Amino acid sequence: MDRLQGMRVFVRVAESGGFAGAARALGMSPAAVTRAVAALETAIGARLFIRTTRSVKLTDAGGRYLEDCRRILSEIAEAEAAAAGSTATPTGVLTLTAPVHFGRLYVLPVVTDYLARHPAVSIRALFLDRIVNMMEEGIDVGVRIGHLADSGLSAIRVGSVRRVVCAAPSYLERHGVPETPRDLREHAVIGTSNSGALPEWRFGLERRIAVAVHSRLTCNTVDAALAAALDGWGIVRLLSYQAASAVAEGRLRILLSDDEEAPVPIHVVSPEGRRAPAKTRAFVDLAVAHLRADPRVNPVG
């Protein structure tokens, strides 16, 4: 009898409290169960049970070995389920979440590609500028921008973005260009609901600088803050992808680039990891491939 089957028999004997109960549960003869446990004891060189005419009890070694066997058998079952899921046809409804602006620009193309590849799946896309509890809200996959808390989620890093300070040329012509982060105290600042909640903006890599800012205008969406900056009202701090189009067109200018913080990571996350159903695993694989191949998300050099 192979070692794994011996482990399964041993675990069942321990859980059943006897050889006869384990034999009934496994559909084996009591003699076959006894031989399997004896063979396992011989193979590992330790006695696993103390047998009397009335009871079967684990030895100290058997108790330790039981926990190891349960862990090993669980990991094997998980690996087999993952392998089966990877070859199964994706079906059902997939629910995903991502930040609003990032979702529209980068995740939606993944969604449409995925739907074309997997006609048996429907997608519910929730583009929200807040961190959702994926377990409580029934989310299968998420894209997170920022450093992850220890949440138990399976996470795959796909790239990074920068936090950039920018303003319209018309604003800079009227009010001048800030040369250092502390110069921002003398400028009109546009906040968003996220950045506006903070009393300071942080700069620098090795030498960290925190600058207190007062946002006379705070917007609850990035699009509104971006529009105000484009109108020349003030200086705004955005993630680089949010400002990329306006910067490329010359409608915004990035400021204080030498004082930027370290880039912010982007992850594709899932609560279930390797145990996820085929629909989720297929989307994660496609999203990772798309996002890692996009130089705006995963810049080279």
Rank of each mutant, 00 (worst) to 15 (best):
L128E: 11
T112N: 11
V161S: 01
Y106T: 02
L184Y: 07
A120H: 14
A168K: 08
R157H: 07
G204A: 03
S160T: 01
P99F: 04
G152V: 04
A155P: 04
H118Y: 13
R185A: 10
A116W: 08
I145E: 05
F127K: 02
I131P: 00
N194I: 15
I145K: 02
R157N: 14
R185Q: 09
S215D: 14
S195K: 10
E173R: 13
L108D: 14
P99E: 05
T112K: 12
N133V: 00
P90W: 09
L148I: 03
S193H: 11
V189R: 14
D113T: 15
S122G: 13
G191D: 12
R162G: 03
R207C: 06
R144C: 08
V141Q: 00
G204N: 07
V189A: 13
H187W: 05
A125Q: 11
N194W: 15
H187S: 10
P90K: 06
M134S: 00
V189Q: 12
T89I: 14
V110L: 04
S195Y: 07
S122N: 15
P99A: 04
E186T: 11
S193D: 04
L115Q: 08
I123L: 14
A120I: 06
T91Y: 09
G176K: 02
A212P: 08
R124N: 11
S215W: 09
P199R: 00
R130G: 00
L153E: 07
L115D: 09
L205M: 13
V177M: 04
H214A: 13
V143F: 05
V111L: 13
G204V: 01
L115H: 04
A98D: 08
I190K: 08
G191P: 04
H118I: 06
R157E: 14
T97A: 03
A210Q: 05
V110Y: 01
S170H: 03
A167N: 13
P181N: 06
R202D: 07
R130V: 00
A168D: 03
R208H: 10
M134L: 12
T97D: 02
P178K: 03
P109S: 06
F203K: 08
D183M: 05
N133P: 04
G204E: 02
V141K: 00
L126V: 10
R104K: 15
W201D: 07
V93K: 12
Y171F: 12
H101E: 15
V165Y: 07
V107R: 03
G191A: 11
L205H: 13
A120Q: 14
H175F: 11
V132Y: 03
E200M: 14
